[in-house]
Amino acid sequence: MKNKEIEVCINGETIQASVPVRMNLVDFIREKLGLTGSHVGCEQGVCGACTISIDGVAVRGCLMLAVQADGSSITTIEGVSENPVGSALQRAFVEHNALQCGFCTPGMIASSIEYIEQGGLSDRAAIREHLSGNYCRCTGYQSIIDAVASVVDQRAEP
């Protein structure tokens, strides 16, 4: 099995590593870097639990190879609180109890950050649509929508 040297900036820290070329990005992040906040739920891009941000864009960590991330800047849930939208969402998720088991939450927050940073409104249907690729078995989604809408509203306040 071939390895390749890569360099990524992850949550602000530059890391050089040798990775098997076939290794998924999320497996690399979890197993090699010990950042276990990103979760693996389906390995086919459907559940959304492994969603992370690469160069400011939300992607499925299971649908990229680690070698493809060479040279990129990655934010995982462990680095989210550095982002004002991220930390507001973390706070709102707790306040609205927008998580139970917490397994989907890192991906849910990554998708929500993208929604808000792209100027998404507090329209519930629009939030539901944006988060429709992130599976949560526990909450029934309503509290998640509440949490995201509340952050949109807070930011809209002068």
Binding site: V21, R22, N24, E43, Q44, G45, R60, C62, L63, M64, L65, V67, Q68
Partner: peptide, 26 residues
């Protein structure tokens, strides 16, 4: 060839597709 990977990567992960070589177009 591997383009965006949003269809091919699931096939690789599920071992439905098993090419010897992947060429990343990204």
């Amino acid at each position: 060839p591997l383009a965006g990977g949003q269809s091919l990567m699931p096939m690789l992960n599920l071992r439905v597709a098993q090419p010897e070589v992947l060429v990343d177009l990204n």
